[in-house]
Structures are given as C-alpha cells and as structure tokens.
Design a binder for these strands. Structure first.
Lengths: 153, 153
DNA sequence: ACGTATTTGTACGTATGTATC
DNA sequence: AGATACATACGTACAAATACG
C-alpha cells in the first residue's frame, strides 16, 4: 500500500516533526545518498512527501544548516563539500579555543553557516582567527602528551 | 516624542527585522547591559516594544542562541555564562579541528546550543571530542612557529 | 542573453502544548 | 495550582535571488 503522503514521521512520538525530518535527511547525507555539492530536494518536495507545513520543513533545513551539513541559498540547498583538509598549520605554543562567530563576524569574514571559529591566542600577538572548515591545526612533532583521557565518548 | 512602539528598527533598510533585533540585543549583551546568567526580556516584551510578530522575535532569539550568547528554556532566556577558561589541556602532537555537533551528538554529550566541538585526532587513538565551551587547549612549550601569518583579520 | 519559473527568505497570523516560574 | 513563557505547527502573503529553458 503506497500513499502520496506516506510520512515516515510519527506525529505522536513526542519528537518534534522538524527534528524527525532533519534526522531523516541527515541520515541520507551521512550515508552518502546525496553526494557533496549535490542539490537536495526542495522544501516543496518534503512538504508534499511528508504532508508537512512549510514552517516545519524550513526549520528542519535550518537545523541541518546550523550543523554545517548543507548550504542554502534562494536557489536551493546543497550538501556542503567537506573542505576539511584544505590547509594545515603548525604552531609552537599558545592556546586554542573554538566558538561560533556572531553574525557580524560571519559576514565580515565570509564564513558559511554552521562553521565555528578556531582561535589561537599567543602572548603578545593578538588572536588569530580561522574558519574551522578551512583550517586543520597540526600540532607538535615531539610526542609529549599530558592527560590523554578522553573527555567525551 | 515617545511612543509605546518606537521601534528603533528600520522596516525599509533591507536588513531583516529579526537580524536587526538580534543585533540590538547582541550589542546589549556584549556591552554588559545584561549580566551573565541574568534573564533577558521575554519575547512578549520585544513584540510589544518593537511592534513585531512572535515569529520575528523568535527568530532573533534563535540567532543569539545559535551564537552561544543566550540559553533558552520554556521559562525564558538567560545570558550564557562564559564558562570559558574552565579546564586546560596539554598535548604533544596531533591534529585539531572544530565543527558543530549534529543534534544527536548534542544530546548524547549534553552540549549546549551554539557550542562547537573541539576534536583532537592522534594516530592510533581515535578522536578525542571536547565541547569547546569547557575546554581550552594549551599547546607546547617550545616556541616553534611556522607560518604566523594571520588568516583572518 | 533574457525572461520566466522555481525556491528560499522574511513576516505576518493563529492555535495548542508543555515546561518553568 | 495558576500564570507565564517558550516550542511546535499549521496557515498566508510577498519579496528576492537563483536556476532553467
């Protein structure tokens, strides 16, 4: 039995519909069902396929955008290309923190949505700020490792 | 001349109203007009003060939440306490990247909204994942610095 | 190259649920 | 327990950027 609107979504599970939809599409992306750079279905498609309101679908896409999984403009959404190991960088000493950019920073530095900042603070130098999707820090050659316990996972 | 609804917001500037409101509140937070941990006005207050719809105000708060500036629950929004220099960590060699957690990760690790992940990859160890608001990496003692050119700003 | 259709962005409204205060 | 405040989700409309024929 097939219906035009066979929502796999559970309206009574307590899990918000937009999160359920986000989970579905996130899974498809993570499993590689949409290649990086490829367009994903339009909001309209999801609206029809799952019988949802635009609001709900829009918010699902918002979630994925904020996770850095898709990039959206008025033409549609595409799976973000990883752009992971673009450039490397060495440094001797300093402190590294990460945080999300504010909107002004995002526009000023032309950073995509869902991309954190990597900030290196070194004495007497002022912060060095990097968009985390374009930078991967390679640290040290000598294998001095204090505290290797995992904090999470 | 004062009016109950003297929106300082410009409906014709081309800048979306929710971004304008977000900018106003962001500025107040950054200038310290709301102390960390302190509640900010309710959506209803902004609705009345600026003559906006709930939707618009909600989206403005969404922006600030995603920037990690406020934390919201069904009781209201509070300015997030920095929690910046909580714990430190040294490491010898490896690679450091940052990215936003997916929603499942966020729930699994109990990470606040708008907080990126700091991930350390070391050969043969599996990734170490840290919530960026609780960790600050201190790197190296020796001052070997290759490439000190700033990437941004 | 241009005009048109598509697609998302913004913003309003309404209603109900639910956690917090 | 009641009031408050946010979360979700439906609806509508128009604007603006993109994509496409």
């Amino acid at each position: 039995v097939s219906s035009l609107c066979d929502s796999e979504l559970d309206h009574y599970s307590g899990v918000p519909l937009y999160r359920q939809l986000a989970a579905v599409v996130r899974g498809q992306i993570e499993r590689g069902e949409f290649a990086p750079g490829q367009r994903i279905p339009a909001e309209r498609d999801y609206i029809q396929q799952y019988g949802l309101s635009r609001d709900t679908v829009y918010r699902a896409m918002l979630v994925l955008r904020r996770e850095g999984l898709i990039a959206t403009n008025r033409g549609g959404s595409r799976v973000r290309v990883p752009a992971r190991p673009q450039m490397m960088r060495w440094l001797g000493s300093g402190e590294v923190i990460a945080r999300m950019p504010t909107e002004p920073e995002r526009q000023k530095y032309r950073i995509d949505e869902g991309v954190p900042l990597l900030i290196i603070q070194r004495r007497g130098r002022g912060d060095e700020i990097y968009p985390a999707d374009r930078v991967r820090l390679r640290i040290g050659i000598n294998g001095l490792a204090y505290e290797s316990r995992k904090f999470l996972n």
